[in-house]
């Protein structure tokens, strides 16, 4: 992955959350406070603006800057969680304008670890982790099987989407949806859904 591709991924993510903003907000209204679409849209628009203004010349620096922008602009839980994930991803990458597939996989692993450390969520808690974990597993499995970035990203996108759908049956144990207890069952988690959009964006720009 080079700087141009990383930028394209974040741009596609911004486009996806903008296009799906109403859906994310509807999902969040059912079990949260109905602002996930608005917040993600504001945050990723700010990321694109920040990167366009002063484009970093290294892939890692680009993700660090994107993460810092999300932390500064979004608020709520999604800002620190997605922001920390991107910062951790960027910090884990070796310096330079291009990174190898294995390094990217390692960076994505660091991103997930940051989310789990900050939010304390485990798989099955009906959160971002329920899309991110299976996506990462699929990505790593594809890489181990010899897939290129496009193949690994496609596998990750499929797994993230399945993971997000599987949250419908879960009872939330973290975040605002947990206040609903059993009433959170039957609704797809908005955070897992936005995570699936971001992995789909990676698949789209690498296909």
């Amino acid at each position: 992955m080079d700087v141009a591709l990383a930028l394209a991924w974040l741009r596609a993510s911004a486009g996806a959350v903008a296009a799906e903003s109403d859906r994310l907000t509807r999902l969040d209204s059912a079990i949260g406070d109905g602002d996930h679409g608005v917040n993600m849209n504001r945050g990723f628009a700010a990321v694109v603006a920040a990167l366009d203004a002063t484009p970093p010349d290294a892939v890692g620096a680009l993700f660090v800057k994107a993460g810092g922008t999300l932390i500064s602009k979004v608020g709520g839980a999604s800002g620190p969680l997605y922001g920390s994930a991107l910062r951790a991803l960027g910090k884990a990458l070796p310096p330079g304008p291009e990174v190898e597939l294995a390094a990217l996989a390692g960076g994505l692993e660091a991103g997930l670890e940051a989310v789990r450390k900050l939010g304390g969520a485990e798989p099955g808690d009906k959160t971002i982790v329920d899309a991110y974990r299976p996506a990462l597993d699929a990505f790593e499995e594809a890489v181990a099987g010899g897939a290129d970035l496009a193949g690994a990203a496609a596998a990750a996108a499929r797994a993230a989407d399945e993971g997000a759908r599987a949250t419908t049956a879960m009872q939330a144990r973290k975040g605002r949806a947990s206040y609903l207890g059993e009433r959170s069952i039957g609704h797809q988690d908005p955070g897992a859904t936005s995570t699936a959009l971001i992995f789909k964006a990676l698949a789209d720009v690498t296909a």
Partner: peptide, 11 residues
Amino acid sequence: PGEVFTSPVPD
């Protein structure tokens, strides 16, 4: 004050 029903940011 953050955005409506959204926590403020660290900065």
